[in-house]
Nucleic acid binder design. Structure first.
Length: 802
RNA sequence: GCCCAUGUGGCGGAACAGGUAGACGCACAGGACUUAAAAUCCUGCGGGCUUUAAAUCCCGUGCCGGUUCAAGUCCGGCCGUGGGCACCA
């Protein structure tokens, strides 16, 4: 029995298109369910088998939910601003829009060939002016709220891409776009005040069902740290040198202060600093270093003592020397620290190198000797009013002291910085701001949005650190919205993350012309119920998107504070050699070839069967062949069909159990065991001489979310019932799941010694009798004292003898 | 260094809530059908008991201990692998 899977797949895809089977309606009586998978970047290399995995997984869930009577929103679109299209434009000297269009075309036909049940009526690309109009509009909302500001700041700079980068894009000191080591650069940038939402972003996680590892990654990234600020007087000035510390209880152990090389006091007090030349030289060296070099922990600590400046310790009024060193970061805390070498490893390393005194203020519990650095807890010594206290008590008492004497205060610090939002690149949303020499920065009026991205003579980044847009004079020169005088447009563009920071909202009402989406639509769909994406986005896209949404919520633009209820991540699909798929490794599998050779259904089934959805899995073409074989066997079952419209007696309980298991497994994303349960059911069908029409239809129905084409086809050929897209999900009956008899194990002293057949209606005594009369069991219990007999029906009989 | 995962046959992986470890699939081996091959179907497949074979006989879920009638699963301590953060004061 042969069949042409390509024809069948095309046929059903056309039917679904024509019937608009997957179109979601805004409103109605049904319960809503919003399933979202991260929209792809339509790159030239086409769809990856990894896309197939996550798209199929959520497709199966969407199909199940529809059959269960939900109104399901399962949309798809394109994240099309950003570097691949831009690099293509630079290379081929063409405006990227056409190339993006082509890539979207390829991606879309690939996705369609998989039979995924996306609602295409809501499709859009982030590069559509109708879309980025609203991205720009939202930027202006941030601006109105005081959450978007332009500031001169030390930012991450990629010398290769010639653009500024956010901290998230420069994680680990490496450029996210090109992998080049980043440096710091002082630049005027648009920033979004994400730091103001640090606590809110941590708090909000409590209302989500994200995977623990995703929550932890976000919490680590935000890096909340509770401590205190302490004001040291700067001797012979009116200034204070403020530091942040989590260990204010060690203030009596301070023997020096360390400033970051960028600290403002160095410039301010250069006249007082007798070795200023040396300081400048050190600052220069620090600036030249890449982030990786600067934060390399294995390297020797370096620094310069500031001659001519001293600080005064507020707890004992002692004079403390001041140093600069690049192990102190300007971007964290106050850019200055108090040095307690006895109880901090970094300070200890620095102090021993430069012979800075070491004062122990916490007694080492394990040693009487006061040598080296001790970071453990213990009782305070040499600490005046803190002597004899432990860490917790000492911190509380010190904060009390600092606040009472107005020389410090409790303080919470975050690692999370404001979001650097400007890019000096071409292919992004123009930032809708205008600079007027009289009025300063002015937002573009709403009725002039979108600010269309113009074509430029050259797409390459410029050497002077300006966006290529700065060369388009008739675009740059405009009039001030406020005074009407001559003004210039902002030429920086938004980062790639802007468009993806609200796209799930647009899907709710993608054609809306008077807002990001209609409020009723947003209220109807509410949160995304399930959002799937890669782990690499845990501290980038997912954090940006939550921040963005929280700001919109606070301004009353969206009705929910947390946009995503549940976030899951899929594992990667590795090459057959267990390595990450890449062209250079030559282990890339093209999904098109697999669809052509084995069919979309086989590819889908295999990718669901390949292993735990959340874990990485290695590709195996033999595994795919095995799944094709499974589908062939399902197809051939037609020849065993009889006329009955009831379940076969012999299969009934297995069928009910399988309905329960498959339903559960798809809902909990345990796709591999769902497929395996269907294989087991097929094996039991295969052992029968004939099967009923109902037996067959239920198997096909359960398989339908995973292999939608072939199941619809067989259902139609055999006239088993209405198409599955229009049929309610099969139901199971717990009572029908009970089997007449089953086997259970019998253990003696914890070791399995026999297996006995038990019927469902037998009581414990009868089971016990059967166990004791078993020949093998007799061997082990004869002549021994029975201490205890444990009988757990359905599970085990356990006999303890002495 | 801190945090989060994770460790089961030749391989991918099952095992609900502590209750017969290895489901299901792949690979491999043997057989049936066939002139032959492919396809299909059937059987076997953790290790050992050392040159016949076998068993509900023994050992086995990274290692060492513990709790329990019973541990892949729970507890304590190690080791390995993967990932996140990291000179963050």
């Amino acid at each position: 029995m042969n069949y042409n899977f390509s024809e069948i797949e095309k046929k059903w895809q056309d039917i679904w298109d024509k019937k608009e089977s997957f179109k979601a309606i805004n409103g109605g009586d049904k319960k809503k369910y919003y399933v979202l998978v991260e929209f792809p970047y339509p790159s030239g290399s086409g769809l990856h088998v990894g896309h197939v995995r996550s798209y199929t997984a959520l497709d199966s869930l969407a199909r199940l939910k529809r059959a269960q009577g939900y109104n399901v929103l399962f949309p798809m679109g394109w994240d099309a601003f950003g570097s691949p299209a831009e690099l293509y434009a630079i290379k081929n000297k063409v405006y990227p829009a056409n190339m993006v269009k082509d890539c979207i075309g390829t991606f879309k036909s690939q996705i369609k060939s998989l039979g995924l049940s996306f609602d295409w009526s809501r499709e859009f690309a982030t590069t559509d002016p109708e879309y980025y109009k609203w991205t720009q509009w939202q930027f202006l909302e941030f601006y109105k709220e005081g959450l978007a500001y332009k500031a001169e700041k030390e930012i991450n700079w990629c010398p290769n891409c010639k653009t500024g980068l956010s901290n998230e894009d420069a994680a680990g000191g490496v450029c996210e776009r090109c992998g080049h080591a980043t440096t710091k650069k002082l630049k005027n940038q648009w920033m979004l005040k994400m730091s103001a939402y640090a606590d809110s972003l941590i708090e909000g996680l409590k209302d989500t069902e994200f995977l623990d590892k995703i929550k932890t990654a976000q919490i680590n990234w935000i890096g909340k740290s509770i401590g205190a600020e302490v004001d040291f007087k700067l001797k012979d000035t009116d200034d204070l040198l403020t530091v942040f510390t989590t260990r204010c209880d060690t203030l009596f152990g301070v023997t020096a202060m360390v400033l970051s090389p960028e600290h403002e006091y160095l410039e301010k007090y250069k006249d007082k600093i007798s070795n200023y030349d040396e300081v400048v030289k050190y600052q220069e060296e620090a600036r030249q270093k890449s982030e990786i070099e600067r934060t390399d922990m294995t390297k020797d600590k370096t620094g310069v003592k500031i001659e001519g400046l001293l600080a005064i310790n507020p707890v004992n009024n002692e004079e403390v020397e001041i140093w600069i060193s690049d192990y102190v970061l300007s971007s964290y805390g106050t850019g200055a620290i108090m040095m307690v070498p006895a109880h901090d490893e970094r300070d200890y390393a620095f102090a021993t190198k430069y012979n800075i005194p070491i004062i122990h203020v916490i007694a080492n519990k394990d040693s009487k000797e006061e040598t080296g650095v001790y970071i453990g807890d213990g009782l305070h010594i040499n600490s005046g009013f803190l002597d004899g206290l432990n860490k917790e008590e000492a911190i509380d008492k010190m904060i009390e002291f600092l606040e009472k004497n107005k020389v410090g205060r409790k303080k919470i610090n975050y690692r999370l910085q404001d979001w650097i939002f400007s890019r000096q690149r071409f292919w992004g949303e123009p930032i809708p701001m205008v600079y007027c020499s009289k009025c300063g920065w002015e937002p573009v009026p709403e009725n002039e949005l979108p600010v269309i991205l113009p074509d430029v003579p050259s797409y390459e980044p410029t050497d002077n650190g300006e966006s290529p847009l700065s060369t388009v004079e008739d675009w740059v020169n405009t009039t001030c919205p406020k005074c009407g005088g001559p003004a210039k447009r902002e030429t920086d563009t938004m980062p790639n993350w802007a468009g993806s920071s609200w796209y799930w909202i647009r899907y709710m009402d993608s054609k809306c012309e008077n807002g990001i989406a209609d409020m009723d639509a947003m209220k109807y769909w509410g949160q995304v119920d399930l959002y799937n994406g890669g782990m690499e986005h845990a501290t980038r896209h997912l954090l940006y998107a939550r921040f963005w949404n929280q700001v919109l919520f606070d301004r009353g633009i969206v009705p929910v504070r947390e946009p995503f209820k549940k976030r899951v991540a899929h594992g990667m699909i590795l090459g057959e050699n267990n390595e990450k798929m890449s062209k250079s490794r030559g282990n890339v599998v093209n999904p098109d070839d697999m669809v052509k050779n084995y069919g979309a259904d086989a590819l889908r089934t295999y990718e669901m069967f390949i292993g735990d959805y959340s874990k990485d899995a290695s590709w195996s073409e033999n595994g795919l062949k095995g799944c094709k074989k499974f589908l062939d066997r399902v197809y051939r079952l037609q020849s065993k069909l009889n006329d009955s419209e009831e379940y076969s007696k012999e299969l009934e309980s297995d069928i009910h159990k399988t309905i329960k298991k498959v339903t559960n497994d798809i809902e909990t994303m345990n796709y591999n065991t769902a497929v395996s349960a269907l294989m087991i059911l097929l094996n039991s069908y295969d052992k029968m001489d004939c099967i009923t029409r109902k037996d067959y239809r239920t198997l096909l129905h359960l398989l339908n979310p995973i292999a939608p084409h072939i199941t619809e086809e067989v259902n139609e050929i055999c006239k088993l019932g209405t198409p599955f897209t229009e049929s309610p999900w099969p139901e199971y009956d717990e009572n029908k799941m009970i089997t007449d008899s089953y086997e259970i194990g019998v253990q003696v002293n914890g070791k399995l010694r026999a297996s006995i057949e038990v019927t469902a209606d037998e009581d414990k005594e009868t089971i016990k009798g059967k166990a004791f009369s078993n020949e093998n069991i007799k061997k082990y219990i004869e002549g021994k004292e029975i201490v205890k007999t444990i009988i757990i029906p359905n599970k085990i009989v356990s006999i303890v003898v002495k």
